[in-house]
């Protein structure tokens, strides 16, 4: 596995001119980015009324995920810390506006601006302290509180990110809840090492149900533990021999055949005492 980019350098240094151009021309990267952006847009659960909406793209980079928003007829504003990536976005003449800014410094927008927010492969950068005065917890909290305020009521924010470990997931989700968001983590294809994707789905209001993850097993595939073999027979519709149900069924059958049968009592199917 390749070294994680956030271990190499801060994002504004890692994504220099060479890396930004490489990132934006690699067809495999483009394909994956578009796929994840489409899934994030799906998880955003915008009302299906063909309305154009204003979406915030956090960590927009060169505008790959913004293109997906454009294809869905949405307006978008992007913010990214890498000048080189944004230069490529301007060069590609993306429809959305792009802003140079740091996620951890807070979102510089008016309250109630956006109908939704998506972020592709950006949130994990906030989990690292790239400068001496950086505190990941504080930066995440600042980011989430300012994001919460610039979303409209009932708006959602969907983050696809690459957590390094469960501690990072815990740190990110706890800061999001502290900022006032609801929601949780949706893991697509949890059993696949390559196809597994983490989506943090955050909601500003209401108690909507968390969306269903892709590729999760629908039903149990193991044999249930059974203590007694006798119980298997009930599945076939027959009671075990000598049991009360079995005896009652036998007596009923004899009555239907017209044979002489003793009546059913509470002593039916009980053992005789030694006296007889």
């Amino acid at each position: 596995m390749a070294r994680r980019p956030e271990h190499s350098a801060p994002p504004e240094i890692f994504y220099n001119d060479d890396e930004a151009k490489k990132y934006s021309t690699n067809t495999r990267i483009i394909e994956i980015q578009v796929e994840m952006a489409e899934r994030a847009l799906e998880l955003l659960a915008l009302p299906d009324d063909d309305e154009s909406r204003l979406i915030l793209d956090i960590g927009c980079g060169s505008g790959l995920s913004g293109s997906v928003l454009e294809d869905s007829e949405h307006m978008w504003i992007g913010i990214d810390i890498s000048k080189s990536m944004l230069d490529i976005a301007v060069e590609r003449e993306v429809a959305g506006d792009v802003i140079l800014g740091d996620m951890g410094e807070g979102m510089p927008f008016k309250p109630g601006t956006f109908d939704g927010a998506i972020s592709i492969s950006a949130l994990q950068w906030l989990c690292n302290a790239d400068k001496s005065y950086h505190n990941p917890h504080k930066r995440l909290l600042k980011f989430f509180t300012t994001l919460f305020s610039c979303l409209t009521r009932t708006a959602r924010a969907v983050f696809q990110f690459y957590p390094e470990n469960s501690d990072q997931i815990e740190m990110v989700t706890s800061q999001a809840m502290k900022a006032g968001f609801y929601g949780g983590l949706v893991v697509d294809y949890p059993n696949s090492a390559k196809a597994k994707k983490y989506y943090l789905v955050l909601m500003t209001g209401g108690s909507a149900e968390l969306p269903q993850a892709l590729g999760s097993p629908e039903e149990e595939r193991r044999v249930n533990y059974i203590k007694k073999r006798d119980a298997c027979r009930e599945a076939r519709g027959k009671a075990p021999k000598k049991s009360r149900d079995w005896i009652l069924a036998k007596k009923e059958r004899r009555r239907r055949q017209g044979l002489e049968t003793r009546p059913d009592t509470k002593y039916t199917a009980r053992k005789r005492s030694g006296k007889f």
Partner: peptide, 14 residues
């Protein structure tokens, strides 16, 4: 510059 507003802050402004 180039149509991109620079909203980056300094250390003492955060």
């Amino acid at each position: 510059s180039d149509g991109i507003p620079n909203m980056l802050l300094n250390e003492d402004e955060v």
